[in-house]
Design a protein around this nucleic acid. Structure first.
Lengths: 341, 341
DNA sequence: TGAAAGGACCGTAACGGTTCAGAACCAATT
DNA sequence: AATTGGTTCTGAACCGTTACGGTCCTTTCA
């Protein structure tokens, strides 16, 4: 029976025909994929965990790029890609337990997320992305800290000392407002934590008292958040000469807010992002470009690579500092205004 | 055992604790989802079939919107969403057979696609999207023909008679070039076929000989295709006063080609699209807006709706004609130039 | 005190495939 | 005629779970 469908060489053509014929006559719909999976211990799919509301991923260009890369890798391997529902609201981990998959990719969830813990308990290979290196599973990411450090050095070189920061959410709880250094250190999103610490290090080295730098957090990740975050920074200190955003989407929002206030970018204020999304490129945004598609593809490759997985692998992809048209030296210099008339 | 995990009320807390303890001690990783699926006959996931290269879906804004809506519906139901790899190159239908899912959503594949046939053979509920009504399974879509008819009427009202068309691929074979009326009629992509037929009807009614209208097809769906398609039309007949594109992406590409040639939109030439994507909106594109997100959500709802499914349901969502800044009356009138100096 | 009712616990039979060992058969060799 | 070798076919075991029904024990009520 099974042979008739999957192993045509194992039986005579005549018998095969007979078997298939009567199968059709009996209305047999072909081998059941679930039963097959049970027996062969292969589900033919990998699970993707993104704790954001599932749909949310489709609004974020960087996430879409990652998804595309991952989908590419899966397609190459003929594997399905299962989007695991993991609503952050209800801490319902059952969806992770119910997912019939051969492995998991975890993309940018807070490191204390219960879904992540549930995934790690499953006895299947896992690749975490944009997460701290857990030591126990494969990891793909970039050097967020180093990349942001480099961007900061660029701004410092231009003469910026009085800056403001708009970042994405740092933890699972909503906190739309200023961020204490404590909260920065304790941030549960690896990516944000490292980008901030890269900034802090560079500016501290340049003699800036980081604890005095206004850092504003936004829970939702969209241009409106970038705009309102920028507004909050500018309200606190209208003298900042640069707005550093931890994503391009936020940066684009910050730029609209700047222009709303009559500030020209980069003449009156410098704005920078992170990611290197298309819309940012079109706007000439100064940013760090990271290979989001490659990140997804690498994650998929790592997971689907059947080779002996001796010890967990950790892959860092290269980033590139893009100097666009949105960064320039501070107009007249912040110092001048500081000691102004 | 099973009860200890899933039915805490069926046994005493003491026994449950004991069972779970020894389970942990023995390294039992919790109930196997595949075996569970086999037994309960529920996979907890729906399959999504898009015959495009899986990754391709993530480049098309309309597809992303659909995906988002579908993901939303799945998330609401706590169901996973399995992207089924269905590479159009190799006619490998096995991926459809191997997918452990409770149902399928089929999105915009050619009606003669072998993967679609394979899905229909599977004994699970199915919803087709942007496909002809098969009569045997649920369907979600819009009135492509009527919507395009309405758009055409708008252009006719503005005075356009000499037009060109750029459309997406009409069948599985690549044909980057002009399209015969035969190929238009025989098109295997329901959506394109109907949009073209809506155009043909409206313009025929207005006295235009449709067989003389240049219709250019492009296999790849991106702005570059729109640009090169527009170029091909304009090379054939530089006198066209309107370029009608069957998608916004193509239309945006057509606009870049127009401006490359020094043609101002809409003063020198009218350009229209279809879909209502964000980028088109920002460009002020005249188009038909369709609720892509709602389409995805409706498909998911239909599939996951456990109610008695008496006979297959067919849902048509409303579209809206958006008159933007890219359509205007022909400059001076085509006739004038036709008989010109 | 005895019967009935109810709750807790346990054993077993599917679910639908794949795999593998071995039976049955046929032909060729010794 | 018996052994060997090879091919085709059959049957049974197993994958890990849940559903179901039966046993046993405790409680309740006449």
């Amino acid at each position: 029976m099974s042979n008739a469908y999957n192993r045509p060489d194992q039986l005579s053509p005549e018998l095969r025909r007979r078997v298939l014929d009567t199968a059709r006559r009996l209305g047999y719909p072909g081998p059941d994929p679930v039963a097959r999976s049970l027996r062969t211990r292969k589900a033919g799919a990998v699970g993707l965990l993104l704790t954001e509301n599932l749909s949310y991923a489709f609004r974020d260009p960087a996430a879409i790029g990652f998804l595309e890369g991952l989908a590419l890798a899966c397609e190459d391997a003929g594997t399905g890609l299962l989007l695991v529902p993991a609503n952050p609201e209800r801490e319902d981990v059952a969806s992770v337990h119910r997912a019939g998959v051969d492995g998991f990719v975890v993309y940018s969830v807070p490191d204390d997320d219960p879904h992540l813990a549930a995934v790690l308990e499953r006895p299947v290979p896992t690749v975490v992305c944009d997460q701290p290196d857990l030591g126990t599973v494969d990891r793909v990411g970039i050097d967020d800290r180093g990349a942001m450090y480099e961007l900061a050095k660029h701004l410092i070189g231009l003469g910026h000392r009085r800056i403001g920061v708009v970042c994405m959410r740092l933890a699972r709880d909503r906190n739309d407002g200023f961020v204490t250094p404590d909260r920065q250190h304790a941030a549960h999103f690896h990516v944000q934590r490292n980008r901030l610490s890269g900034l802090a290090e560079a500016f501290s080295e340049a003699g800036v008292d980081w604890s005095q730098v206004p850092v504003v957090e936004r829970f939702d990740h969209n241009m409106a958040s970038g705009a309102s975050g920028a507004a909050q920074v500018l309200d606190r200190d209208p003298q900042v000469t640069a707005l550093i955003c931890t994503s391009d989407v936020l940066a684009l929002g910050a730029m609209t807010e700047a222009s709303r206030r009559g500030l020209r970018v980069p003449h009156d204020i410098t704005v920078t992002g992170f990611d290197g999304i298309r819309a940012g490129e079109e706007a000439g945004l100064t940013t760090v470009r990271q290979p989001v598609l490659e990140k997804g593809r690498a994650a998929g490759k790592l997971l689907l690579d059947t080779n002996e997985r001796s010890r967990p692998r950790s892959v860092n992809l290269a980033t590139e500092l893009i100097i666009g048209k949105t960064s320039a030296g501070p107009r007249g210099g912040a110092e001048e205004r500081w000691f102004g008339p």
